[in-house]
Design a binder for these strands. Structure first.
Lengths: 143, 143
DNA sequence: CGCTGTTTGACAATCATTCTCAATCGAGCG
DNA sequence: CGCTCGATTGAGAATGATTGTCAAACAGCG
């Protein structure tokens, strides 16, 4: 990492570097905005390549991580360790996944939302987010 | 992927898994039993090497995965994608993690347990398990 | 227009995890 | 008691996601 400090510029408005909106960053953000679901970095990369706005894989990762740090995107892990991303404005929900066939149902639970927030506050944590995945065997796979 | 036609290591719940307790499998199971926490496969491997019961890393992974399939061990992912394992008898709890310094607090919530089970049942899912992680900024890191 | 720090991207490097496959083990058999 | 054959092991190669490297392209501003 470069030190990016000590220059005469006082551009430090809130925290770190003010992220310049380049063509590729915009492309990544738009790609994320165009899907309602979690997507892997590679998915985004493919999407962009196919969409005539090719962006280097490394840049996709960098941008995605920057967005996560900026709190504009949520990231979680699939069962096999792949990172998946989703823009975090839309309706917040969780996934009920079948261990066997992979069938996924989106579920919501105000109770859980409230509980996590409360627990976190109770321990003095702020800016709370959470990741919850439920695994089970779906009806069709039980037979 | 291979078809694994002859093997009985699938998910045959009607009959007990033909997993024979070899020296290394026992060692892995005991290592897991000796700690109350989540450990990575590499942790277990190191632990065993130091404990005069060396087991190959590949075997540790194989055994751990077998135990997970057999439902004797829980596996989840850290934020950076590493798989961590814990024998799944003991008190079930979740983690409240500081995004900034990594400080972790274990929390319990009967409500969540009940909710996940209920939701899953409602959708016809059985053999339910879940993973919940709460992220936030802890008190010390807010200053 | 030129200067300077930022951003990009091809590619190498990392790291956890899985695969390969020859050597070894172990239980039942003759 | 020694043999056979499938199960198991482990060293190292292979995989695949992610991150680091670094020279070249870029963007704002003076």
């Amino acid at each position: 990492m470069t030190s990016t400090e000590g220059m005469g510029l006082e551009r430090v408005s809130t925290e770190r570097t003010p992220l310049r909106p380049t063509r590729q960053r915009t492309a990544v953000a738009e790609a994320l905005a165009s899907v309602d679901d979690f997507r892997s970095a590679q998915d985004i990369h493919d999407l962009l390549s196919r969409a005539a706005t090719p962006v280097g894989l490394a840049t996709v990762y960098r941008t995605l991580n920057a967005l996560v740090e900026a709190g504009e995107v949520d990231m979680l892990r699939t069962e096999d360790g792949e990172a998946i991303y989703r823009r975090c404005s839309e309706t917040h929900h969780h996934h009920l996944v079948c261990r066997s066939c992979g069938a996924t149902i989106e579920v919501e639970g105000p109770a859980v939302e409230r509980w996590t927030t409360a627990i976190a506050a109770e321990h003095g944590y702020s800016e709370v987010s959470h990741a919850l995945e439920i695994f089970g065997t779906c009806g069709s796979c039980q037979r």
